[in-house]
Design a protein around this nucleic acid. Structure first.
Lengths: 161, 161
DNA sequence: CACTAACAGTTAGTGGACTAATGATTAATG
DNA sequence: CATTAATCATTAGTCCACTAACTGTTAGTG
């Protein structure tokens, strides 16, 4: 009695096994990791006049413009109600244009302006800059990306239920 | 000529190599995974009257109440300015109490009410319910958790720069 | 002791993200 | 063909999350 076992405090044992312990929550780790990594983008994106969600929209448009709000919603896994004001801000910044599709007046055709297209050049430096700031192995990042992709699939996209 | 190679479209090759491709962004996968998983919590937490960030605060308090705003900020990696209104909502819901610390009048002592403590029983069912909804291997989730922890460390917590 | 620094928390302002409800257009159906 | 249903986008309302500026308290320094 009074051996090494007594050195292990009950509170520590509880933390390790407790399913309600903060450190054991994958959802918490996901939220913190997401905010932390997005935080790395902030100083890089701010000079470009972009927030991170706006940057993602620009990525989608640089790849496949023109896109409708519905298209962007599906690609970015965001609600149209989230995109609507965001796109207005991008339009106010002069990076995109929003007009109704002639084929279907319900649909909005989001296109890039010359300024919006030109911004791509600056953006091309971003991924390498972020990876350097992170200081992580590219292979490890790829592994993480795959794990995240599986979680997204398991959770059913961004769709609840 | 006209063999299998011609079946590979240039647009696909571009997507694979393009550092600005949406699908290649770890930050995008992180954001979508975070929102997707948190979305799974919504139907479970709503009957308890909690949002996901509020749930995380309750986890911290169930573990180590009383805590100051500063403590919660450090534990949850959230700005005090984010927590301040959130804590007021939890107080309005009758789950916590906020009073100034007698030892240091600057500090706020956040404690649980009886109702707040009682809510833990319902919460104990949540982790298993979420894992079941996700339908993922526990070992894989642990691996993901470790990978996320490394990213958080690499990004320097939630701190920008 | 007075004066300045540092610290803890709050407020104000911007922007994201969701749900629910609305308006407008197109598609489907009796 | 007229009515109904489905679709696309927007608005309103709530809550998170951040930065910057502010209040009040404590600690440090001349």
């Amino acid at each position: 009695m009074g051996g090494l076992l007594t050195e292990v405090r009950m509170s520590d044992i509880g933390d390790i096994a407790d399913p309600l312990s903060l450190e054991n929550q994958v959802c918490f780790a996901l939220a913190v990791a997401s905010r932390s990594v997005i935080g790395l983008y902030r100083p890089v994106l701010e000079p470009m006049g972009l927030t991170h969600p706006q940057y993602l929209v620009m990525l989608a448009l640089w790849q496949r413009a023109p896109l409708s709000v519905k298209d962007l919603s599906r690609l970015l896994q965001l609600e149209p109600a989230t995109l609507s004001p965001l796109l207005k801000r991008l339009e106010a910044a002069g990076l995109i244009e929003r007009r109704r599709s002639r084929a279907d007046e319900r649909s909005l055709a989001v296109t890039l302006t010359g300024e919006g297209r030109a911004l791509r050049e600056q953006a091309e430096k971003i991924p390498a800059a972020i990876v350097e700031r992170l200081g992580m192995d590219v292979a490890e990042l790829q592994g993480l990306h795959q794990a995240l992709t599986r979680v997204i699939a398991a959770a059913g996209g961004a769709r609840p239920g």
